[in-house]
Amino acid sequence: MALSFKVKAISRSRFLKNFLVSIIFFLSFFLIFFSKSEYFLVNKFKSISNNYLYPITSFFVAPVKVISYIQTELYEFRNLKFENNILKEEVIRLKKWQALAIHNNSENKVLKKLLNSTDSSLTLIKTASLISRNDFMFSKMININAGIKDGVLNDMAVVNYRGLVGRTIDTSIGNSRVLLLTDPNSSIAVKTISNSNYSLLQGSDDGIHLVSTFNKDEKLPRVGDLVITSGSAQVFPSNILVGKIVKVTKEIFYVLPFVDFKNIDYVQVVENK
């Protein structure tokens, strides 16, 4: 049970208190009002907090990070034999695909020469690694160790080997925050590969799937269709893999992203050529 009640309030210097309360009220109002409108002073404040406070908090939670790392290692070690068998089977399957891919690649090169087309539309800005994650309670964000000094700016596309991860927000000199696709406030213009249904996607309530918020011509795709970026919103380059449609209802459809957001180590910041 709690101790019996005793307030040790000190009431000295009334003027100073009132002055401080007024300043705090004014600052709160300023920050709340301008935070939503992304005013540059608030953005600067966010960048500074990210740059200086994060390393301090990371230092204090280092022992927990070590425990988490050991736990992951132990889990992987226990599953080593099982994983080895799966990998052996996968190697056999991939060898067959590799032969086919080499054949297709050489054919593609010849066809591109014939059509005089340009190559990949993406330019790699920087490959960065994950510093910390912020997708615990509300938003879905990660911090990466690439910033303005590496040429990373706000609203650049972030990908990994599986597909689209998100876009950069709050870039500072050495770090950037990435708003993941699964965040309810992220919006992506996409199209399906099979029949080019154009839609807008945003993070769903479960934090795992993406849900459509707008479908062009009210056409709905089918379950199993692959979804790629359409490039029409000018934020994400076109033709980056996003995910696979797993559920279609009367008005909306759900997409399971290809990227495993719980296991992100390295990402690449890219932009249109």
Binding site: T57, Q71, Y75
Partner: peptide, 17 residues
């Protein structure tokens, strides 16, 4: 300390968060 632990998400030890 609890603030630091809350803002650093541990995927495998989410109960700590």
């Amino acid at each position: 300390l609890s603030f630091s632990l809350s803002v650093n998400y541990f995927v495998d030890l989410v109960f700590i968060n």
